[in-house]
Structures are given as C-alpha cells and as structure tokens.
Design a protein around this nucleic acid. Structure first.
Lengths: 357, 357
DNA sequence: TTATTTTTGAGTAACGTACATCATTTCCGA
DNA sequence: TCGGAAATGATGTACGTTACTCAAAAATAA
C-alpha cells in the first residue's frame, strides 16, 4: 500500500519531481503524519525537540504547504467586510464599485466580500459599526478609518476578538490595524506641486482648495504641496486654502470670489472633492488665458475635464488596486502567510489627458 | 450513506449555505456525477440535449467550479516560459528580476515560471527558441516579440502545438498570440509630449533621441510624441531624432554635437535606452539654464537622475505588473477561464521626483 | 425485431491537507 | 519501579474535483 523507493514510475515519489508533501516531511523527520500535522497547525502535544526536528526536515526538503489543498480541507472561506463611508463622494463610490467587482471574481477563491456603508465623518457611528462585527461570521475587516479615539478603541476591540483589521484609504496610525493600504498623501501633495510648479512658469499665486482642515489626508496633501512649492518654486506663492467642504457649489462661489480679489492667480490646486465647482468658476472667470489646474481622484468628471483640457493633471489612487491589495493582504494575514510586498505598494498615479485609462 | 434532505445539521446540504458542488448540479439536472463531469471537462459521449440540461442546472444553481479542488485533483501545474531578450538593456534586466521574484511566490499556487534569454534583435534566434518549446513540459509562453515574419510563423507553430502564447512588452500584431501584455506606446509618446510641452514654456526646439527606427515601440512613441507636439504645442518643434542605438556613448556624442549645432534647444525627449548618455551630454554642455528632460523606463539610473533633478519625468511601464499580469492571463487561458480585465490593464505610469516608488 | 453503437449511471481511487479518535509509547516524579 | 501524564503513532473520514472502469440503459441501424 505504501509506495517503496519506487523509481521513475509515473506516480512514484520521484525524489526530484513533484514538490514535497507532508508525508515526505514525516518520513524525512522520522515521525508520523499526525505529528507533522500537529506541528504544522501548532496543535498541542508535541515536544519542543520534535517540533524542531520537523521544522528542520521541512527546511531541508523545501516543503511548502499547499494552501489550496489546506483550504479545501478546512473548507475555509475568507469572509471579509469592507467598511466604507456613505455619502456622495465620488471616490467612495468608486471604492464601493471596486468591492463589488472584486467580489464577483473572488468568489472563485472562496473569498466572500461584503461592503457596509457608514455615515461619513462620524466617529461614534464608525465605532459602532466596528463593534457590530461578529467574529463568528467574519475573518477580516478593511476600514476607511477616521483618526479618532473611539475608532481606535473599537479597532482594538475588534483585533482582540481575533479579527484581522487594516485601514484602507485613510489611516489611523496608532490603532490596532495591522497595515494601511493606501497612498502617502504627503507624497501626493508633493507630486502635485512638482507638476503645477513646472506648469506655471510665470510668477504669481496658486489657489489651493481643500475639503476640510479636519481631514487627515487633506492636511497631509496640503503640507506636501506647500513645502515643495516654497522650496522649489520660489516664483510661486500659495494663497490661504479655500475650504470647499467637498461641495461643488461652495467651491464655485469661493473660488470665484478669490479670482475677483486676487488678480495674480496663475494656477489652481484642488486636493479634495467638489471639482465640478472649479470648472464652473473657471467658466465664469472674466477674460485671461487658461490656468493650469491639478486636482485629485480620477472621477468621471475629472476625466471629462482632463479631456476637455480644463484640468491639466489628476493625481489618483487606483481604487481597484487598493481593494484587491486589501483582499490579498487580509487573506495572507488570516493564513499567517507573508505578503508579496512589491505587488502591494499603492502608487501615486499621475494622469494627464493622454494616458487616461 | 448519502445524505438525505437533511436540514440544518452542520454538514448537511443546507440549500442556502455552502456553494453548490458538482453533486448538487447532478441532482438538479437529474443526471449522474459522471455526466456532469463529462460536460464540465467537455469529454465525449454526452448528448447535446443532456449537456444543455446540465448547463441549465449550473446556471440555476449559480454553480462555480472550485478551481483549487480541480487543480488539486488534476495535479496540474502551470508550467510557463518567459522568452526575454538578453543583453545589457536595463529594462530587460528588470523584467528578468520580476520573473524571478514572481516565480518564488507563484510556486505556492503550483505555477512554475522559467525565463529564457534570447539574443536581442535576432528574429531567427527567437523563432528557434520558440520552436524549441516542448508541449510536454510547458503549458504557456510569454514572449517579448519582434514583429518579423519568422517570429510570427514560429508563434503560429507554437499555438498549433497547443501552447498558449502571448506577447509581452513588444507586440507582434498579426501573429497567433492570444493577447498582448504591455503598454500602448503611442499613448506613452503622447503622454511624454503632454508633459514636455508644458514643461517648456518658451519657443524652441526639442531634441529627440531614439534607439532605432526599426524598433516598433520606438517608432510608435515617436509618432505619438511628434503628433501631440505639432498639434498642441506650436511654439515647439522636434528636431530630427538622434539614433542612439540604446548606447550611452553614442547618445552622449550625438547629443553633444546637436547642442553645438542647434542653439535653440529647450527640451529633451528620449524614448529608448542609453539615458546615461544624456546625463553626460548635459553635464558637458556650455552654460545656459537647465533643460527639461523626459525619458522612458524607470531604471536605477533614471531614478538617480530624477532625484538629482536632471530628469523631470520618467514614463514607465511596471515590469512587475506586466509579469504578474502575463502569469494570470496565461493561467486563465490554460484553464479556459475569463480574466478580470480592469486588473490586467497595464498603465502608462508617470514618475517625477516626488512620487517615486 | 435484433444487433450495435452511443449515452448514461454507479462506484472508486486519487490529489494534499485538516482533524478527530484511539491505541501505544515515552517521559517524569514519587 | 510504578503510575499517571504527556507525547506520538495509526487510521479513517472529509473537502470538491478528476479520471477511470464496468455495467446498464437508451438510441440507432440493420
């Protein structure tokens, strides 16, 4: 019943052929299958010394556990929950869509994705949503976090319940999250400055539009942007930012007012949402040549404005990448597997009219 | 032995619980397991009508074949070969490295990658390498193709032997390749023009450096670049391209000569390799302010030049993405599975000093 | 109708792992 | 040196699929 030292017969254990299995490890370590299994799934009842022998055997053979078979046997399914912000924000919409699309393809790999919407900018609500997650029906959570104490606490409780958790687009640095998936917003701001600085050769002022000074990403983008402009483009100066509350009407009104008050504006940087307001303000602007404009997030509107030549560049983070990366990382965390880092880096994408996807 | 209509007992067939299996499909279609299997792996010996009934049952149940289990049973391993160009080209180096890194991680999923080097710019050699591929030990091939008749023919023979084949960075449009994985080089050239056009506000000429007028990607990039410059930046004119043969010394010499002959150069676009030559030519240039420079491929040297402020932007295609995408697509082709398109689009990346990875 | 081919059913052993049970061996302290 | 606890072995079943055999049934040809 057991295969002998069989040679190159189709199925034999051909020492060099198929990759090693648990049985090979058992044989190599001189223990039984059961013991290898105990070590592999660190179950109790195996002596330290034996465990080391098994480990050494795995090392020697280059054993790699077959995750597909393991998961098949475990009939494990990775049940992941995405907590996204509700509201009209275009980018959040894109995230939601990316979750859905990814979900339909992931079901092949026994990955079940679920996205839940949480009222935006509402720490207690987010904390409540986190607390409502039941370890019996979910294995991992990705959350678009706000950096507030109650949220951090809730994430701590979640982790304590044995659920792996990572932050998605907006980080909460001192929480129990095991990773952050998203871009470095300081870098994004610096990149915008590098573009706009070069796009604006004549001395003058830059209009800066942000959503809210309370949003961490916006603050970071502004920081990166203003630092680079000040250091590398001394012929430009940033005006005090307009707080547009990510609302097109507010942005249009305030920006128009700034055009009237400040004749020396030579460029526009918008680091939040509400970009339709910029288009309107520019249309209503009296005379003058067109202004270089750099904005964030490649929404359908931003895309249209790029194509129309109203925007010059869009700084983007790829929602699809972020979701897929979050899924892969969560699965790896759940399995206790390492991740393939170069694949998981989310890059700060620059889109212009010509390289639109 | 067979489970009855058992209700919510842990393992029962809970009509709504676990996803449907072949047994469920068989029951639903009123046929046996064997028949479902015959349909699934389109084996002969099943009537048209029966096949349709099974198909309908799968539809109704939303059956999705468990690829992990299937592959486990088949003990299939995806054996893929990458044919890359040998030589000193930095980008090819990066491709090779990406194959190796991906290989080490893919072995977990029973994917075995192998890369083979072929003399560059040598159609017959590439054709020979393609012909040397044995269907008994490889399932799919990704090739950095040159667009030559003998290569196209060899790809046809490869496909005829039942090996799935796709082109990798450089396409061969009318061949038997099932897909092309790479960027649109016309788009890449247009993107470079959009950047350089904006970086050069003053009227003048653009020095253009290409590797060879025989390389398809280079020709396409040049086409895209010159079209956009002519149409959208009339204050700029492209000089006749320098053919640097992807060689730093040649590039340095020819570009220095052009600096001497042409005083009105306001920007540089290099669409091939040999970018170290540009740095040298710029260093040796007499006086004058610094020139905007846009190049292709984020090699270590290009990266250094970006950081030093010598280059302004680099147009890049992510070698890692390309390799991983090729692997995923080949596996999908082999399995006869659909691919997840949004994930497989290779984008034209723009890197500046501030958004370097 | 019979003979023959084609289609279908039923069953079984894999694939590599997980997990449970029970028997057996080894260890350690009294 | 014994008793009990801890460690290990042996074995079986399951996961969802593939792939095979052999027999039974159904369709088709004669």
């Amino acid at each position: 019943m057991d295969q002998g030292e069989g040679a190159a017969r189709g199925r034999g254990p051909d020492p060099g052929a198929g990759r090693p299995t648990v049985r090979d490890v058992a044989r190599e370590a001189g223990v039984s299958l059961a013991t290898v299994d105990r070590v592999l799934n660190d179950r109790p009842g195996v002596r330290e010394a034996t465990a080391r022998r098994v480990g050494a055997a795995m090392e020697r053979l280059g054993y790699q556990r077959d995750m597909a078979a393991a998961n098949l046997s475990k009939r494990r399914s990775y049940r992941l929950v995405f907590l996204l912000a509700a509201g009209t924000n275009s980018f959040m919409h894109m995230l939601r869509e990316a979750v859905e699309k990814t979900a339909s393809f992931s079901s092949m790999d026994r990955i079940a994705l679920q996205s839940r919407l949480v009222p935006p900018f509402d720490g207690p609500a987010l904390a409540a949503a986190l607390d409502a997650i039941d370890p019996r029906d979910t294995d991992g959570v990705a959350v678009v976090a706000t950096d507030e104490p109650e949220v951090r606490d809730a994430m701590g409780r979640l982790a304590a319940r044995g659920i792996r958790v990572l932050t998605l687009v907006s980080d909460a640095p001192n929480s129990a999250r095991e990773r952050f998936v998203g871009i470095d917003n300081v870098v994004a701001g610096r990149t915008a400055a590098g573009l706009l600085g070069r796009f604006c050769p004549a001395p003058g002022r830059i209009a800066v539009i942000m959503g809210s000074a309370l949003l961490r990403d916006h603050v970071e983008r502004r920081l990166g942007f203003e630092t680079v402009i000040a250091r590398e483009y001394p012929h430009l100066a940033c005006l005090p930012p307009i707080e547009g509350r990510d609302d097109a009407d507010t942005v249009a009104r305030e920006l128009s007012a700034q055009f009237a008050a400040e004749p020396g504006i030579v460029g526009i940087y918008s680091l939040g949402a509400g970009n339709r307001g910029i288009v309107r303000a520019l249309e209503g602007r009296p005379g003058g040549r067109r202004l270089p404009v750099v904005v964030h997030e490649l929404t359908p509107h931003a895309r249209g404005a790029l194509m129309a030549g109203v925007f010059d560049a869009v700084i983007n983070q790829d929602a699809g990448h972020e979701i897929r990366s979050a899924v892969r990382i969560l699965c790896a965390l759940i399995d206790g597997r390492p991740t393939f880092e170069p694949q998981e880096r989310i890059s700060v994408d620059i889109f212009m009219r010509d390289n639109l996807p």
